[in-house]
Amino acid sequence: MQRLKTRPQFQAALAGGTVSRTAHFALHRLNLPQPSDFPSAPAECIGPAPSPAQALFDLSGVWLGAMVPKRWARRAVTRNAIKRQIYNVSERFGERLPVAAHVVRLRTTFDRKLFISASSDQLKLAVRLELEQLFERAVLQPIQPKAIA
Protein backbone atom coordinates (compact mmCIF):
# COMPACT_ATOMS: atom_id res chain seq x y z
CA MET A 1 0.00 0.00 0.00
CA GLN A 2 1.34 3.39 -1.01
CA ARG A 3 0.61 6.70 0.70
CA LEU A 4 -0.79 9.78 -0.97
CA LYS A 5 1.68 12.64 -0.72
CA THR A 6 0.70 15.54 -2.96
CA ARG A 7 -2.26 17.88 -2.87
CA PRO A 8 -3.42 16.89 -6.40
CA GLN A 9 -3.46 13.24 -5.35
CA PHE A 10 -5.65 14.04 -2.34
CA GLN A 11 -7.95 16.24 -4.43
CA ALA A 12 -8.37 13.56 -7.08
CA ALA A 13 -9.17 10.88 -4.49
CA LEU A 14 -11.68 13.15 -2.72
CA ALA A 15 -13.37 13.89 -6.05
CA GLY A 16 -13.87 10.16 -6.59
CA GLY A 17 -16.78 10.06 -4.16
CA THR A 18 -17.63 8.76 -0.71
CA VAL A 19 -17.67 5.00 -0.38
CA SER A 20 -18.30 4.59 3.34
CA ARG A 21 -19.11 6.69 6.42
CA THR A 22 -19.17 6.31 10.16
CA ALA A 23 -20.00 8.80 12.89
CA HIS A 24 -16.56 10.45 12.71
CA PHE A 25 -14.94 9.31 9.45
CA ALA A 26 -15.59 9.23 5.72
CA LEU A 27 -13.73 7.11 3.16
CA HIS A 28 -13.36 8.52 -0.35
CA ARG A 29 -12.26 6.39 -3.30
CA LEU A 30 -11.04 7.13 -6.81
CA ASN A 31 -11.09 3.95 -8.86
CA LEU A 32 -7.96 3.64 -10.94
CA PRO A 33 -7.99 2.02 -14.37
CA GLN A 34 -6.27 -1.33 -14.57
CA PRO A 35 -2.94 -1.31 -16.46
CA SER A 36 -4.51 -3.72 -18.97
CA ASP A 37 -7.07 -1.02 -19.87
CA PHE A 38 -4.35 0.89 -21.71
CA PRO A 39 -2.87 -0.76 -24.82
CA SER A 40 0.89 -0.83 -24.95
CA ALA A 41 2.24 0.66 -28.15
CA PRO A 42 5.60 1.87 -29.42
CA ALA A 43 6.55 5.40 -28.42
CA GLU A 44 6.39 6.66 -32.00
CA CYS A 45 2.70 5.79 -32.29
CA ILE A 46 0.36 8.66 -31.55
CA GLY A 47 -2.55 7.71 -29.36
CA PRO A 48 -4.86 9.12 -26.75
CA ALA A 49 -3.41 11.33 -24.06
CA PRO A 50 -2.81 9.71 -20.69
CA SER A 51 -5.58 10.06 -18.15
CA PRO A 52 -5.10 12.32 -15.12
CA ALA A 53 -5.11 9.21 -12.92
CA GLN A 54 -2.14 7.86 -14.85
CA ALA A 55 -0.24 11.07 -14.24
CA LEU A 56 -0.94 11.14 -10.48
CA PHE A 57 -0.80 7.46 -9.51
CA ASP A 58 1.18 4.37 -10.29
CA LEU A 59 -1.71 2.19 -11.42
CA SER A 60 -0.40 -1.01 -9.89
CA GLY A 61 -1.45 -0.64 -6.28
CA VAL A 62 -3.66 0.61 -3.51
CA TRP A 63 -3.10 4.21 -2.41
CA LEU A 64 -4.14 5.66 0.95
CA GLY A 65 -4.11 9.10 2.53
CA ALA A 66 -5.35 10.44 5.86
CA MET A 67 -6.91 13.86 6.43
CA VAL A 68 -7.28 14.95 10.03
CA PRO A 69 -8.04 18.69 10.00
CA LYS A 70 -7.23 21.00 12.90
CA ARG A 71 -10.86 22.00 12.88
CA TRP A 72 -11.85 18.56 14.22
CA ALA A 73 -8.72 17.63 16.21
CA ARG A 74 -7.12 20.72 17.73
CA ARG A 75 -4.11 19.08 19.36
CA ALA A 76 -1.24 17.80 17.22
CA VAL A 77 -0.87 14.78 19.51
CA THR A 78 -4.48 13.80 18.78
CA ARG A 79 -4.12 14.35 15.03
CA ASN A 80 -0.97 12.22 14.90
CA ALA A 81 -2.53 9.46 17.01
CA ILE A 82 -5.58 9.33 14.71
CA LYS A 83 -3.40 9.22 11.59
CA ARG A 84 -1.34 6.37 13.06
CA GLN A 85 -4.55 4.45 13.75
CA ILE A 86 -5.75 5.06 10.18
CA TYR A 87 -2.55 3.69 8.66
CA ASN A 88 -2.37 0.74 11.09
CA VAL A 89 -5.95 -0.36 10.51
CA SER A 90 -5.65 0.12 6.75
CA GLU A 91 -2.73 -2.33 6.63
CA ARG A 92 -5.07 -5.10 7.80
CA PHE A 93 -7.50 -4.35 4.97
CA GLY A 94 -4.88 -3.63 2.28
CA GLU A 95 -5.23 -7.01 0.58
CA ARG A 96 -9.02 -6.70 0.38
CA LEU A 97 -9.20 -3.11 -0.88
CA PRO A 98 -9.48 -2.57 -4.65
CA VAL A 99 -6.79 -0.92 -6.75
CA ALA A 100 -7.78 2.67 -6.10
CA ALA A 101 -6.79 5.86 -4.33
CA HIS A 102 -8.42 6.12 -0.90
CA VAL A 103 -8.63 9.03 1.53
CA VAL A 104 -9.85 8.62 5.10
CA ARG A 105 -11.18 11.96 6.33
CA LEU A 106 -12.07 12.91 9.89
CA ARG A 107 -15.41 14.67 9.51
CA THR A 108 -16.32 15.53 13.09
CA THR A 109 -14.63 15.88 16.45
CA PHE A 110 -14.33 13.31 19.20
CA ASP A 111 -15.98 14.73 22.33
CA ARG A 112 -13.31 16.17 24.62
CA LYS A 113 -15.55 15.56 27.61
CA LEU A 114 -15.41 11.81 26.96
CA PHE A 115 -11.74 11.74 25.90
CA ILE A 116 -9.99 14.18 28.22
CA SER A 117 -6.44 13.16 27.35
CA ALA A 118 -5.11 14.19 23.96
CA SER A 119 -3.84 10.69 23.23
CA SER A 120 -5.48 8.23 25.62
CA ASP A 121 -5.86 4.49 25.15
CA GLN A 122 -9.64 4.97 25.23
CA LEU A 123 -9.48 7.42 22.32
CA LYS A 124 -7.21 5.12 20.32
CA LEU A 125 -9.54 2.18 20.91
CA ALA A 126 -12.61 4.20 19.89
CA VAL A 127 -10.83 5.39 16.72
CA ARG A 128 -9.64 1.87 15.89
CA LEU A 129 -13.10 0.31 16.28
CA GLU A 130 -14.71 2.98 14.12
CA LEU A 131 -12.03 2.67 11.44
CA GLU A 132 -12.53 -1.10 11.31
CA GLN A 133 -16.24 -0.49 10.65
CA LEU A 134 -15.36 2.07 7.97
CA PHE A 135 -13.01 -0.26 6.11
CA GLU A 136 -15.32 -3.26 6.49
CA ARG A 137 -18.11 -1.30 4.80
CA ALA A 138 -15.73 -0.13 2.07
CA VAL A 139 -14.62 -3.68 1.29
CA LEU A 140 -18.25 -4.74 0.88
CA GLN A 141 -18.98 -1.76 -1.40
CA PRO A 142 -19.14 -2.80 -5.08
CA ILE A 143 -16.43 -1.44 -7.35
CA GLN A 144 -17.51 0.88 -10.12
CA PRO A 145 -16.25 -0.40 -13.50
CA LYS A 146 -14.96 2.92 -14.78
CA ALA A 147 -12.39 5.30 -13.30
CA ILE A 148 -13.27 8.94 -12.80
CA ALA A 149 -10.89 11.11 -14.78
Rank of each mutant, 00 (worst) to 15 (best):
G61H: 12
L27H: 09
V139A: 10
D37F: 05
L30W: 09
A15K: 12
V19E: 01
F38P: 01
R21I: 05
V103I: 00
I116D: 14
H102S: 01
T108S: 14
E130F: 07
P145N: 08
C45T: 08
H24C: 12
R21A: 07
P8E: 01
S36E: 13
Q9W: 00
W63A: 08
Y87P: 07
P39F: 11
A66E: 03
Q34W: 09
G94H: 08
E95W: 04
L59N: 06
V89I: 15
L64P: 04
L134M: 07
E44C: 09
S119W: 02
R128Y: 08
E132L: 10
P42N: 02
F110V: 04
G65W: 00
R112L: 02
L56Y: 13
L27T: 00
A118E: 13
P145Y: 02
K70E: 11
D37I: 03
Q54W: 07
L114F: 01
A53T: 11
P35C: 02
G61S: 15
V127S: 01
S20H: 02
R7A: 10
K5A: 14
L129Y: 09
D111N: 10
P33D: 09
A126G: 00
L106Q: 06
G61T: 11
E44T: 15
A76Q: 04
H24A: 06
A23W: 05
A41P: 03
V89C: 13
P39S: 08
L56Q: 05
L59R: 07
R74H: 09
P142V: 05
E130H: 07
L59Y: 05
E132T: 11
I82E: 08
R21G: 12
V89H: 15
Q85M: 14
L123D: 00
R29C: 14
A15S: 15
R96N: 14
R137D: 06
A101C: 13
L129T: 12
P42G: 04
M1F: 06
Q34P: 06
H24S: 13
V139I: 13
Q34R: 14
V19F: 02
V68S: 03
P48S: 14
G17E: 03
N88F: 04
Q122T: 10
T18A: 10
F110Y: 11
R84F: 15
V104G: 04
A118W: 06
S119Y: 04
P8T: 00
V127P: 01
A53Q: 10
K113V: 11
F57Y: 06
T78N: 04
E91W: 05
L27A: 05
R84N: 06
R107N: 12
L30D: 05
L129V: 15
L32K: 04
D37A: 12
H28I: 09
A26P: 00
A147R: 06
T18S: 06
F57C: 02
N88I: 03
V77D: 06
V127E: 04
S40I: 05
I116E: 14
T6M: 14
